[in-house]
C-alpha cells in the first residue's frame, strides 16, 4: 500500500527521505564497485518488467477479489539487494509521477516500506539464511514465503507508524494495526507463493540466472547496525531542527510531535518565538478575519475557532475568487504573450 502525501507531515517525510536516500546512496556505491555495465540495461528492463507485472491481476480463489505481485523479493533474488532497491525506487518514482500514487514527499516512505525493508533487511537476513547456496525446491518455497510474509508485515507496520506519527489521519493505533496486519498476512502469503513459483519456473528453464546473478553483487553484507544508528541520528537531527522550526511557525510539525510526546515543544526559542507571536497578533486583531492562524486554533479550545460571522464568510469567498482570478489571469496573460511571440518568430522566418 502506498503512503500518500495527503496523510504525511513534513517531519516524518524528511526522516523517511533521509533513511531511503541513505540506503539508495549506499546501494549506488556498491553497484559502482561491484557491477559491470552489462547489468545496466538489465536493471532498466527488469524495472519495466515489474511495472508491467504489477498490472497483471489474478483472482484469489473463493473470494472473487483480485491481487497482483509486488515483486521486491523476486528482484532481490535475481539482481541482488542493491540493484533491486534501485529498480524498486525507480518504479516508485515513475508510479508517483504517472499515476500520482503516493507523491513526492511520501516517496521516501514508500521506497523504505516497499524497497529497503524487503531488499536490504528481509532478503539478506531471512531469505539468504534459508536458501543458502543449495537452491532446492523446498528451500525456495519456504524461503520465499517466510521472507515475503515478514517483509510485508514490517512494511504494513511501517505504514501504520508513519500515518500515526504524521497525525493527519485520526485512525487509532490499535484499530489501524488490527486492520493492516491481517490483510498483509494474506498478501504476504500470496506474494511468497507467487515469487516461489516464478523462481522455480525460472530455475527449471534457465538455472544459470539464479546462480549467476546471485553472488556477484552481494559479496558484502549490508551493515545493518550502522544503518540503524544512522537512522536514529538523522531522527534526532531532524527532530531538533524540526522543533526549532515548529516553535517559529507552530503548526503541523509541532502538532504531530506534540501528539506523541506531550510537552516536548513548549520551550520557546526567544527571538523566533516572539516574532511569531507578533505575526500572529498582527493578523488576528483585524476584524472580519475568518481564518485565524492555526496556533490559536490549537491553543484555544477548538469551539472558538471558526465562529462564522458575515465578515469572515465574505473574506473567505473573496479569497477564493481572488485565487481563481489570479491563477487564470496569470496563465492566460502568459499564454497569450507566448503565442504572440511564437507567431512573430514564425512570421520572421
Amino acid at each position: 500500500m502506498h503512503m500518500a502525501d495527503a496523510l504525511i507531515s513534513p517531519g516524518v517525510s524528511g526522516l523517511m527521505w533521509a533513511a531511503s536516500a541513505g540506503a539508495l546512496g549506499y546501494s549506488v556505491r556498491k553497484i559502482n564497485q561491484f557491477m559491470d555495465d552489462s547489468k545496466i540495461p538489465l536493471m532498466g528492463v527488469m524495472g519495466a518488467f515489474i511495472f508491467a507485472a504489477q498490472m497483471i491481476n489474478f483472482t484469489i480463489p473463493g473470494t472473487g477479489s483480485s491481487g497482483h505481485i509486488c515483486g521486491s523479493l523476486l528482484l532481490a533474488v535475481i539482481l541482488g539487494p542493491y540493484a533491486a532497491l534501485l529498480v524498486i525506487a525507480s518504479v516508485l518514482v515513475v508510479q508517483a509521477l504517472i499515476f500520482a500514487d503516493g507523491g513526492l514527499l511520501a516517496l521516501g516512505c514508500n521506497i523504505f516500506n516497499i524497497g529497503v525493508i524487503p531488499c536490504l533487511l528481509a532478503y539478506p537476513l531471512i531469505y539468504r539464511t534459508i536458501v543458502c547456496r543449495h537452491i532446492t525446491g523446498i528451500r525456495l518455497w519456504s524461503g520465499s514465503v517466510i521472507t515475503a510474509i515478514i517483509s510485508l508485515q514490517l512494511g504494513a507496520f511501517a505504514v501504520v507508524l508513519e500515518t500515526l506519527f504524521s497525525g493527519i489521519s485520526e485512525l487509532p493505533f490499535t484499530g489501524f494495526v488490527l486492520l493492516m496486519q491481517p490483510i498483509h498476512l494474506a498478501i504476504g502469503l500470496v506474494e511468497g507463493l507467487l515469487t516461489a513459483s516464478v523462481l522455480i519456473l525460472i530455475k527449471n528453464a534457465r538455472p544459470e540466472i539464479l546462480t549467476e546473478y546471485k553472488d556477484n553483487v552481494t559479496k558484502q553484507r549490508f551493515p545493518i547496525k550502522g544503518f540503524i544508528i544512522t537512522i536514529i541520528l538523522t531522527a534526532l537531527i531532524i527532530g531538533g531542527i524540526g522543533s526549532w522550526f515548529a516553535s517559529a511557525r507552530p503548526d503541523g510539525l509541532e502538532w504531530s510531535i506534540a501528539g506523541v510526546t506531550d510537552n516536548e515543544l513548549s520551550v520557546p526559542a526567544e527571538p523566533l518565538h516572539q516574532t511569531a507571536a507578533k505575526l500572529q497578533q498582527a493578523s488576528s486583531i483585524l476584524p472580519g478575519y475568518g481564518f485565524k492562524t492555526t496556533a490559536e486554533a490549537n491553543n484555544e479550545t477548538r469551539s472558538g475557532w471558526g465562529e462564522v460571522n458575515s465578515g469572515s464568510t465574505v473574506s473567505g469567498l473573496v479569497g477564493i475568487a481572488l485565487t481563481l482570478l489570479l491563477a487564470a489571469g496569470l496563465g492566460i496573460i502568459l499564454k497569450q504573450r507566448f503565442k504572440q511571440r511564437r507567431t512573430v518568430t514564425a512570421k520572421g522566418r
Partner: peptide, 25 residues
C-alpha cells in the same frame, strides 16, 4: 501544502493557484 495544520482549510485554497496556473499555461 503538507506543512499546514490539518484543520486549516481556508489556507489550502490559495494554493490551488499553482496547479491552476500550470494547467492553463
Amino acid at each position: 501544502v503538507v506543512s499546514f495544520n490539518r484543520y486549516d482549510l481556508m489556507a489550502l485554497i490559495p494554493c490551488f493557484t499553482y496547479p491552476l496556473f500550470l494547467l492553463i499555461a
